[in-house]
């Protein structure tokens, strides 16, 4: 028998009985950006056995941080999006071409909602992969550093074209093995602190962990501007940060494991709006 005792121990026993239900639901507020209402809470997709509802990370932030996302003029992430807009029309590389020579931004509407996805080559492609492929193969330019500011800003600019549309990544067919791999990573305990993503972002969302209120660890708002480091943060950079916090050796930014995890976590947000670029602390 284990040592749970009456007192706070009783509370622990009750939490224990309720199993996963120790997470706390956030207060639902409306998020309207530029006149478009975002879906910040939605019924969990059927493959998420342990969740009834899915929530945007926005709901878990303080009112002050929330306010920064309401208006693009206040959103510090938009500075990076504007820089990406300049890069979009600047020729680079041996072919002397700019993105704008071959693409119009509006053509990317909806793309964010379905990435990552499996291409004809059987590989899982992230937004970063598509952009770098155009740079190396079509422009004769160097690939941008995965997770670096240039690439992440461009990912935000293209993601912005889908803002307000529901995330809708595929998890079946050729995506299935990648999704399964991502799921396994999400539930596997790692590091000296011996925790899985799920321990914080599924079992305990809504609760304070020291100064932070835990969210569900959704990525519908990525890339995200963080007040903490004053820049746009890629999905993989965030995964890396969380792994280091539990003293785990992170997987490689841009590597297969994080791409699989990105697909799995994106699927946990199927139904939430693309909120790019979001603002977090």
């Amino acid at each position: 028998m284990k040592l749970t005792r009456i007192g706070a121990g009783l509370a622990a026993a009750i939490i224990g009985l309720a199993g996963m239900a120790s997470a706390e639901e956030p207060e639902i507020k409306k998020l309207v950006i530029d006149g478009v209402e975002m879906t910040v809470a939605a019924p969990a997709p059927p493959y998420l056995e342990n969740l009834d509802m899915i929530y945007s990370g926005w709901l878990f932030r303080s009112p002050e941080t929330q306010a920064l996302e309401l208006d693009d003029f206040d959103n510090p992430g938009m500075v990076f999006v504007e820089q990406a807009q300049d890069m979009f029309s600047t020729p680079e590389g041996t072919a002397g071409k700019a993105c704008a020579d071959c693409h119009q931004l509006e053509d990317f509407k909806g793309l964010r909602t379905v990435l990552p996805r499996v291409e004809d080559d059987g590989k899982l492609w992230t937004m970063e992969d598509y952009i770098n492929k155009c740079r190396t193969d079509r422009m004769g330019a160097k690939a941008w550093k995965y997770g670096g500011t240039e690439l992440t800003s461009m990912v935000a600019l293209i993601g912005l074209q889908s803002r307000g549309m529901p995330v809708n990544v595929k998890i079946d067919g050729p995506a299935k093995p990648y999704w399964e791999k991502g799921k396994e990573i999400f539930y596997t305990r790692v590091g000296q602190l011996d925790m899985a993503c799920a321990n914080c972002h599924e079992d305990n969302y809504g609760k304070m962990i020291r100064a932070d209120r835990l969210s569900q660890g959704q990525i519908n708002g990525f890339p995200t501007y963080r007040l903490k480091n004053g820049k746009l943060n890629s999905v993989h950079a965030r995964f890396k940060g969380c792994m280091k916090n539990i003293r785990a050796q992170p997987y490689n930014v841009g590597g297969d494991e994080f791409k699989a995890l990105e697909l799995y976590i994106a699927s946990r947000g199927n139904g939430l709006s693309v909120e790019t670029p979001s603002v977090r602390n």
Partner: peptide
Amino acid sequence: ALNPDTIMPAFYKDWGFRRVLKKF
């Protein structure tokens, strides 16, 4: 001592973990 599935770390255990950062 409490619960095999607890999130609370084991503070005096130095083996049996996965992917521990090198310095730990």
